[in-house]
Design a protein around this nucleic acid. Structure first.
Lengths: 150, 150
DNA sequence: CTTTATATTTAAGCCGAGTTAAATATCGGG
DNA sequence: CCCGATATTTAACTCGGCTTAAATATAAAG
């Protein structure tokens, strides 16, 4: 049965809607579980993705002033999930990095969120698994392209 | 090329990681754009999904007291995106519903977030589109099952 | 060396989100 | 009708996030 582009768009929308809701739920429960604000979540994700960051970069990415970022990061330092060290190349700046505790927290969080994927994958026949694998690889390729130019 | 369940799990994980980031970004920019807190976003999504809600149900779903929900909804009423009406079947309770303005706001938000899906869908060949359509329908079916029993 | 720009922090204040406790109104069973 | 349960609101308070403005320290340019 052939499908039109419009049908595919509709399917993608359903898929995205379902996923968005799940992701949001995941993110919110993780935040609540660890007493983190959305800004703090965003900051941790940035640090997790980019490695070391400085304070104003984090502020910029969150769309807040560096004063706000500084205060919010201070609370993360007190919780022991990040650490601030002086940038050896520019002693005005601080380097923000995850502590071992912070890294562990994020890692465990991802693992917990991924647990259900195993069940999902196993519920398909080998043929279906192949089909889905191929389709998702196609999608991932294109999406990473789009992601890259943003 | 055959694939193992583990490979599929890995692909799904990549997908979820990519998606979680995008969703979070989408949600945060929508919230910022409309001056909404995460609780308010959650409340609006609940109302959007389930139609009418009462105050304490929304509080329960957000994991806050009904007092907190009441105050937060009051701010949404003042912003004109929801309205409270007396429940005709139980005059203690209020029915919370989106106003036309609120419905429009959410609709426009979804549309904007979905715009790129058109581009994405069109970038595949008809054969690829068929493949992706079939795969996503398989996934959607299983995921909605899982969603239903939660 | 002096001046200006940059990176961060601190202080003061506003505001929203959350809490508990109390008030109000209504429902429902006996 | 009365009483305990339920739904919502209000009040008083705490806390965190945000802002602006000022302070501090360092870098970089002239």
């Amino acid at each position: 049965m052939p499908c039109t582009t419009d049908e595919l768009i509709e399917t993608l929308q359903e898929w995205v809607a379902l996923f968005m809701r799940r992701s949001m739920h995941n993110v919110l429960s993780f935040a609540k579980e660890h007493n983190l604000s959305m800004s703090q979540m965003g900051a941790l994700m940035n640090i997790h993705r980019h490695g070391m960051c400085n304070v104003s970069t984090i502020g910029d990415e969150l769309g807040v002033t560096s004063a706000a970022a500084s205060q919010m990061l201070e609370r993360l330092v007190q919780q022991g999930v990040i650490e601030r060290t002086e940038d050896p190349n520019d002693r005005r700046a601080k380097q923000i990095a995850l502590t071992e505790k912070g890294r562990q927290m994020i890692h465990d969080g991802f693992r917990a969120r991924y647990a259900w994927l195993g069940e999902l994958a196993a519920s398909f026949t080998p043929d279906e698994q192949d089909l889905i694998q191929t389709a998702l690889r196609l999608l991932l390729g294109k999406m990473q392209q789009v992601d890259g130019r943003q």
